[in-house]
Each structure stands twice: as structure tokens, then as C-alpha cells.
Design a binder for these strands. Structure first.
Lengths: 220, 220
DNA sequence: GACTTTATATATTAGTCGATCCATAAATCG
DNA sequence: CGATTTATGGATCGACTAATATATAAAGTC
């Protein structure tokens, strides 16, 4: 007669616990710990021993839950995008104008990348990942896709702005999008070197000056 | 009686060959090969076996000549700066104006980072190095110094431009220098993802628009 | 020539890597 | 209850890691 009795009867899964011994750790929390470790140290430099210690589990549990180090890294990339990168990309998507979208993206990046959120490494895990150069082709392709997704989002927003009349059609959309992506990537490198939020925001500020000049200049 | 007899008598070193068996390989060439391998794969992912194969020597010769993997990487950083990075930083130093210095730096970076020079990896070895995050503190400090050296050169050139009257004193020197450094760093990330020279040059072009607007805007 | 010094090639070191085996524990099913 | 299924902890696997020991080779010095 409680709400609990009716809360999930229509969902096909999760009604019954699985057959065998239940997992003794929180899979999501362990994945989060692994993500932050990969984020801070990179793929190659992070060992299974490092991971099991940070996750608080034994290696057999790690392999049972995630399959392999590569599979764990792939899941960590998804976890990062969903739980950290989305913070400022969501604002980008919701902004009313392309200019405000880019501005909030760069300013939000300045805050997030400088490591203000306690317990998170500095810089973007995806921008700074070099797993593709280290000989892991599949993971490299996944990181590459994640990186280009940002560039495509910028291009799409700019094209929409051209359609809306916010941005003149004479603007080089690709160049402007790549410029914003490059500034954001550079901010990650500087963040890893210890740049603080104010310093990164000043970069974003200059970049917005460039944005405005580029759009104003194309009207001639 | 030949020129050779007189060419180096005043130099205290290199006159005589060293005492024992002479080295059978070209140390500089081997260092160059090691540099390009570290450059392409990063420190952690490059093994001694990879290095000895690329350098064409055995591991005892490597350790006799360079000391350790870390010492070899440190020398590779110096080799990179002297033989690759100097190509576009020299132009920066020789440019008559700060604007031309920055422009030639970014355009030169676009060419060099996109891997046009045959046989060199894409992107900047120093900008993309994550050796400091991988737990190697000394090497990380060396990479950090190399990265900040570029930023300091930019600041110094801007200050000189202010003294010359090229740039108004109201300009935020630090922000502008960091902006240029960030753009250059972002270009390295894009280069590693396969961006070609024209794409990187378009980024440099937008960045220069930002530079001009920033300086013009500060006059108000 | 004998002696010293340095470099190379082969083989090997102790340690760490990612990944598993095994025995035991903890749950559901019948 | 026994049977089945899954998870865990400890031990361990072969492969690879950075770094060396040993023996031989090639140079200068005397």
C-alpha cells in the first residue's frame, strides 16, 4: 500500500535483484573515482593498482564490472561527458544567441577547467587526452569523436545564427568555430599548468573581442 | 699544412679523440630519433625497446650515452626546442613590430604544427606533453618552464611594444599574451586531431582579428 | 707489443604491467 | 534444505618494463 509498491511495477527491469551475490560496491561511485584518476593522470600512467586503490575494490571486481582497462576508460569518457563536461555545454545549448552561447561556453570553461569544483583535476579530460597517440586506436577514435563533437556543435550554432540573421552570411563559419574550439583547448593546457579562473576568464574575454570584431568586420 | 691542421688548434676540446673505443653511432642523430618518438607517443607510452629500435642501438649504448629514460627525455626536450620550436620562435623574435611577431608566430605555428615538415609528428611536443601529470615531477617542471617561456616572451614583446608606442598602455598585456598562448596551444590539439595547415591558419587569422580589435578598442 | 679505457652485443635482473585462477562468501531459485 | 549464480579476496599468471652484468671488441697510451 506504500508508494514503493507501485512506483516501479511497470518498469521491466530493476524490479528483481539479480540472481547471485550482490555487488558490494557502488558501481557509479567507483566509475567516478576511476574517471577522476584517468582525468588527472592519463590512460597510460594510470595502472590497475592505482585504479583498484582509488575505487576501493579488488582487481577481479574491476574486471567483472568493467571488462578491461580499455573498457573502463571508455566508460570513464562517457561518465566525464555526462557529469562534468555537460555543465557548461548545457548552458551553451540553452543560450538565446550564438554570441551568448559562445561567451557562456568560454566563461564556463574558465571556471570548470581551473579546477574550482573541489576534487576535480584541472583541464578537460578529453582535450588533454593523448590516448590516441599512445597506440590505442579505438579509444583514440572515441576521444577524437568527443573532441570534434564540440566543434560540430559550434558550427551548428553558428549556422543557426546565420539563418536567424544574428550573424551575417559572409562570416567564415568554420574558421570562427575552429577559433573558439582552439581557445577552449588552449585554456585546458593553461589550466593544467595552474592558471586560475581569472586568468582563464581574461583569455575568454579577449576571445570574445575577436568574435565581435570578426562578425562586425564581415559586414563591410 | 692543410686548413684542417689549423682549424681547431685553439679549441681546448674535441682536438683529440677520447681514450677508449669510439662510439659507433651518431649521438645527435640518435637523439633526434628519440625526440621524434617521444614527440609522437609521449613519455609513458614510449618504451626503451621502442627507443632502441628507432635509434638503432642497444640498450647498454642508450644508457651509456644518455643515462636513463628520464635524462633522455630531458635532452629530447632541449633538442626539440633547438631544432623544431626555434623555427617559428626565431621569426617571432626578429619581427619589427609586436603585431607582426604574433602574426608570424601563429602562422608559422600553423605550418609547423600541422606536420608539413616530412617526418615530424603533428602538434607541439611541449604543449601536448603530459609528463608532469604522469608522476614525473622533475620532467614536468622542465616542460612547465618551456611552456611558460613562450608566455613570458609574449609578455616581454608586448611590454616593449607599449614602450615603443605601438600598443597603448591601457591594453591588458597579460590577458593578450595569455590569449595568444592559448590559441597556439589549442592549435596543437587540433593539429594532433589532423587539422591541416589551412585550417590552422584560419584560426590564426581570427586570432589576429581579435588582437587588432583588442588594441583598437583600448584606445577609446 | 702490453695496458687502459670506452663501446657494443648478448643475456639477464628485479619489478610492474594487465589480466585470471581459485577458494570462499552471499545472494536467489526450486 | 540443496543447487545455482554471482562477487570477493588472495595468490598468481605470462609478458613486458627500465635498467645491468658479463664478455668481447676497438680504440688510445706507453
Amino acid at each position: 500500500m506504500t508508494m514503493r509498491d507501485l512506483s516501479k511495477p511497470t518498469t521491466t527491469k530493476e524490479a528483481k535483484p539479480p540472481r547471485g551475490r550482490p555487488r558490494a560496491f557502488d558501481r557509479e561511485a567507483a566509475l567516478g573515482a576511476a574517471t577522476r584518476l584517468f582525468w588527472a593522470k592519463g590512460y597510460e600512467a594510470t595502472s590497475i593498482a592505482d585504479l583498484t586503490q582509488a575505487m576501493g575494490i579488488g582487481s577481479p571486481s574491476l574486471y567483472a564490472a568493467f571488462g578491461s582497462k580499455e573498457a573502463l576508460y571508455a566508460e570513464a569518457l562517457d561518465y566525464y561527458r555526462a557529469n562534468y563536461q555537460s555543465l557548461f555545454w548545457d548552458k551553451f545549448q540553452r543560450a538565446p544567441t550564438a554570441r551568448e552561447a559562445v561567451r557562456t561556453l568560454l566563461v564556463g570553461s574558465a571556471g570548470a577547467l581551473s579546477g574550482c569544483s573541489a576534487g576535480t583535476p584541472s583541464g578537460c579530460m578529453i582535450a588533454l587526452s593523448s590516448v590516441g597517440s599512445e597506440g590505442h586506436r579505438e579509444l583514440g577514435a572515441k576521444v577524437y569523436e568527443a573532441r570534434t563533437a564540440g566543434l560540430h556543435a559550434l558550427k551548428a550554432r553558428l549556422q543557426a545564427a546565420v539563418a536567424d540573421g544574428e550573424v551575417p552570411a559572409s562570416v567564415d563559419i568554420d574558421a570562427l568555430a575552429r577559433f573558439v574550439a582552439a581557445v577552449q583547448g588552449g585554456m585546458s593546457i593553461m589550466a593544467r599548468d595552474g592558471a586560475n579562473q581569472a586568468e582563464l576568464e581574461s583569455v575568454a574575454d579577449v576571445a570574445m573581442t575577436g568574435w565581435d570584431a570578426r562578425i562586425a568586420g564581415s559586414r563591410t
